[in-house]
Amino acid sequence: MNKTNEQAKFFVNKLVQDLAGMNFKIVLCPPFVCLSDITEILKGSNLHIGAQNCYYENFGAFTGEISPVMLKELNIEYVIIGHSERRHIFGETDEMINKKIKAVLSNGMKPIICIGETKEEREKGLTFCVIESQLRQALFGLNEDDVRKIVIAYEPVWAIGTGIVAKPHQAQQVHMFIRKLLEQLYGQEFAQQIPILYGGSIKPDNFLGLMIQPDIDGGLVGGASLDDQFVELAKIASWLV
């Protein structure tokens, strides 16, 4: 919940110039009120557009919510679903997240599915149990064609907005677990095709160590996406492509 529409337009116009020619996928997910204008700015650029959330019904008496149909009309490509703040501040359940994922897919967009454990769950040794439960419930009822369209983001809740970042080996350990679980469900070749991002206090000084891990395919960037740090992160990523 950052940047007014005018601030967002100014920032993204600069990003279009600064990130031109980057040969990997960069997705911007501004607030809902900015989506229409930002989509226009990104036309013809190498940058892609996503939304931060949506509801699972296409229309109805759900005051204050945004439907996937509304997003699709704006040519939104990606929708973040199940972010830890949605889970822990707004009380979204695994069942609700599964419904949202299905709604996004049925409207021709791609969900970025966030999963991750709290500090208490990690300290109790429950990290892998939580990750498996969240992922299995997120993917419940999806066929292989659906799963080919998803992106998974591992976000340890204890690292989001805290300045604490998972050490590269900690993040890799969980990403490898996610990849192995996908292999069990869909096969090894299929699992290698699913992007798994890391999110949680990513900064230019820790991004390279994360990105060189074999099962980390990119980053879901929070606070560092609001200023020139984002361009620095993109330059780091470009070294590895």
Rank of each mutant, 00 (worst) to 15 (best):
I160S: 10
F140D: 14
T118F: 10
G163Y: 01
K167T: 08
H169V: 14
H169A: 15
G163Q: 09
E155C: 05
N98Q: 05
C114A: 12
I115P: 09
M109G: 12
C114T: 07
A166R: 00
T127F: 04
R148C: 01
H169Y: 13
L135F: 01
N107Q: 09
R136K: 13
E120L: 07
A171M: 01
G161P: 03
V165W: 04
H175S: 12
D146L: 12
E117A: 05
M109N: 06
E132Q: 13
Q137T: 11
L105Q: 02
H169D: 15
Q170G: 13
S133Y: 13
D145N: 10
C114N: 11
V174C: 09
P168D: 04
N98G: 01
G161F: 07
E155R: 01
V130N: 02
A166F: 00
K110Y: 05
H169R: 08
D146R: 12
L135D: 09
V104N: 06
L135W: 00
Q170Y: 05
K124Y: 10
K99E: 12
K100M: 07
K110Q: 10
A166G: 14
Y154I: 05
V130C: 05
S133M: 12
Q137P: 12
I115A: 09
G163I: 10
L126P: 09
L105W: 02
I160K: 01
Q173W: 00
G108P: 06
R122S: 12
